[in-house]
Design a protein around this nucleic acid. Structure first.
Length: 524
RNA sequence: GCAGCUGUAGCUCAGUUGGUUAGAGCGCCGGUCUGUGGAACCGGAGGUCGGUGGUUCGAGCCCACCCAGCUGUACCA
């Protein structure tokens, strides 16, 4: 053919951060959501669903001092010029829903929902621009018991998903405690809002950068491996030390961290620090009590943490699941009290054997001000969200998911083109018996191709009826899974023949359904 | 956004100090095969060597800029 003059075809491709999903992945997602749903239901939550698009103002994502939405959210203008956005989480839309239907809902209102959310940001491992979250929220209860329940339910959900106790941790902190710390070191007031933000960001990086990194970020700044420089919060040395001491006091009760000398916890020693895995939450709260005893906000936050720890102690007497951790921050936007974060504690490697950082697989917290944006009165609320997509990609990278192909349908092959109706009748018989079945609809000329097709579909077996079988009133059943096993093994001749007979055999036409059922039951 | 690294077939990669018409394995399609998939043999399709410009008699290779991907970092509800 002529080499040149190729039509200018569109290149099929996906925007980055978006993914197609095949049968195996969809099945895995379905199993996961069904598992989580069962746990949430058991805790007494009921489903509610909201659309993927909301008014941007309802999501609260306009850029400050501009009438354009934040760049992190996908937004567009409706034909009446109003800004609409794809939801970036399931919490803000729930707040809108509750505010809009406030009088009709029982309080406390306990609800759950799964759905895709969208964020316009740089993707990475386990990080997508469209991904699924599975949320549960309790609206109308200010009790720490509601927060404790979120932590317990998150733990139950992760374990139901097959993540064993000890392979994950639910970290808990309280925004009031952090606020109290900053008030106590002279960072209260509007003029310090920027510094407070920088401090929270620095603390948030503790598990990734270790103490040295956080210390650098609280002070002058930090240079990363690529040589890029991050401006620090420019705190005084006293302020920096107070915060570092605060972070450590949450862990001191284990006796493994000490403040003098070089600080022991760095990025490289982090995994072994995790492996200690015995959380004395009451002791940590007690330690934290001594730091800023005069600050009311701080003490209020600790009271709540203490209450959560007490409830958690019943759920988790071994102290391996729920961990009070002063370095947990979560989002900077709407959390007002307790915050939680679920993390996997084992290492995950990519296909080249390099360790991959997946980040948290779930999180949440108390957002007492969010619904109040729509109403005159404040409405307390707390919730937890499981990052289904991220968890799924973590488990897949771990080799725990998506390895096995879904079993395909039984394929009825075509030998004589004139007898399509006969073959279709067999398919119908199988379908009526509740068996997934299909007629081979490709070109039947080459019989081998029909078996190749069935093989590709991962069919358990095929049905064959040529002229010889027809004359005897029989059909052949060929067990493809057994056949594959035989081909793999180099067995003794007798053994081979016996298995061969098992793998393909003839039955009277009337016994078709029964024989296929028998083959299916072999491979269940 | 910033920084570093990497771009050759669907995938994994080779391609000499710059030298004819750019290769291999796997995969894909077809044939041997009007009665049997995973085997064997044979054949075929598939590349503007990421793009543009430059240096040169000559560029996959050298230079500049751009684009994309990866990693780190920033932001992250």
């Amino acid at each position: 053919m002529s080499a040149k003059q190729k039509p200018n075809r569109i290149k099929p491709r996906l925007p980055r951060g978006f993914a197609d999903r095949g049968a195996a992945e969809i099945a895995a997602t379905r199993r996961m959501t069904e598992t989580i749903r069962a746990v949430y239901e058991r805790y007494g939550f009921e489903p509610v669903e909201t659309p993927a698009i909301e008014f941007t103002e309802a999501l609260g994502k306009f850029l400050p001092d501009q009438d354009r939405p934040n760049e992190g959210v996908f937004s567009f203008q409706d034909d009446d010029e109003q800004w609409l956005s794809l939801r970036y989480d399931l919490t803000a839309p729930l707040a809108r829903y509750v505010a809009e239907n406030f009088d009709a809902l029982p309080k406390p209102y306990r609800s759950y929902r799964a759905g895709y959310v969208f964020r316009n940001e740089k993707p990475g491992p386990g990080r997508f621009r469209q991904f699924m979250q599975f949320d549960a929220d309790t609206v109308g209860s200010a009790s720490p018991a509601a927060d404790a329940e979120m932590c317990m339910m998150a733990a139950d959900a992760l374990e139901a998903l097959g993540i064993p106790r000890g392979s994950y941790v639910i970290k808990v902190n309280n925004r009031k405690v952090l606020d109290g710390v900053m008030e106590s070191i002279g960072l209260a007031g509007n003029e310090n809002a920027g510094k407070r933000l920088a401090v929270l960001r620095a603390i948030d990086k503790y598990d990734r950068l270790g103490v040295d990194g956080v210390q650098a970020l609280l002070g002058e700044g930090r240079k990363d491996e690529s040589g890029d420089y991050t401006q620090g919060a420019k705190l005084t040395e006293d302020q920096t030390l107070a915060i570092v001491e605060f972070i450590f006091s949450g862990a001191n009760s284990q006796g493994q961290f000490s403040k003098q000398g070089s600080l022991p916890l760095t990025r490289s020693t982090l995994p072994s620090a995790f492996s200690v895995r015995k959380f004395d939450n009451a002791g940590r709260v007690k330690n934290l009590r001594t730091l800023f005893p005069k600050n009311a906000t701080y003490n209020e936050g600790l009271d709540e943490l203490q209450a959560i720890a007490a409830i958690a102690a019943n759920f988790d007497p071994e102290g391996t699941v729920i961990s009070v951790d002063p370095s947990v921050i979560r989002g900077l936007e709407y959390y007002t009290g307790p915050v939680y974060e679920a993390e996997l504690t084992f290492e995950i490697k990519d296909d080249k054997g390099r360790p991959v950082r997946f980040g948290s697989v779930g999180g949440g917290g108390r957002y007492d001000g969010l619904i109040g944006r729509f109403r005159a009165e404040p409405v307390p609320a707390t919730g937890f969200s499981i990052g289904v997509s991220r968890l799924q990609s973590a488990l897949t990278a771990l080799g725990k998911l998506g390895a096995e192909k879904e079993t395909g349908p039984v394929v009825v092959t075509v030998f004589d083109r004139e007898r399509i109706a006969d073959y279709q009748r067999m398919v119908t018989a199988l379908r009526n018996a509740g068996i997934r079945a299909e007629l081979y609809l490709g070109n039947p000329k080459n019989f081998g191709n029909q078996l190749k097709y069935a093989d590709r579909r991962n069919s358990p077996c095929v049905v064959i009826q040529g002229g010889d079988e027809k004359a005897r009133g029989e059909v052949q059943i060929k067990d493809l899974i057994l056949g594959a096993e035989i081909a793999g093994l180099s067995t003794e001749r007798d053994d081979y023949l016996r298995k061969q007979a098992e793998a393909q055999f003839a039955v009277p036409e009337a016994d078709l359904v029964r024989a296929v059922r028998e083959v299916l039951s072999r491979h269940r």
